[in-house]
């Protein structure tokens, strides 16, 4: 078994309104920054042991499908690194 860190990034699908991101963008503008658009995402760093990087990715993918993301509104990406 090898030790990996799987990083799962969950974000709203394009086109789904994100009021928190919009409010944050608005606050940045109030501070004098010019921002065209701002997107927010949740990032999960998961330390796990697996037979291979591919196995670690499958496991993290399963976690995203079953809990970390809601497929109705979210897209997600998985990155795997040895640790």
């Amino acid at each position: 078994m090898t030790a990996y860190t799987a990083t799962v990034t969950v974000r709203l699908k394009r086109g789904v309104l994100d009021p928190e991101a919009e409010t944050t963008r608005h606050s940045l503008e109030r501070l004098g920054f010019e921002v065209d658009e701002l997107r927010m995402a949740d990032r999960f760093e998961i330390d796990l042991d697996a037979e291979s990087a591919a196995a670690a990715r499958d496991e993290a993918d399963d976690m995203a499908e079953r809990l970390l993301a809601n497929p109705t509104i979210h897209d997600y990406t998985v990155d795997v690194d040895e640790r």
Partner: peptide, 17 residues
């Protein structure tokens, strides 16, 4: 109910935040 797929769709942050 929606998170458990008993019903379709999702309820998320109000447009007003």
């Amino acid at each position: 109910g929606c998170e458990s797929s008993l019903t379709p769709g999702a309820f998320t942050t109000n447009a007003s935040a």
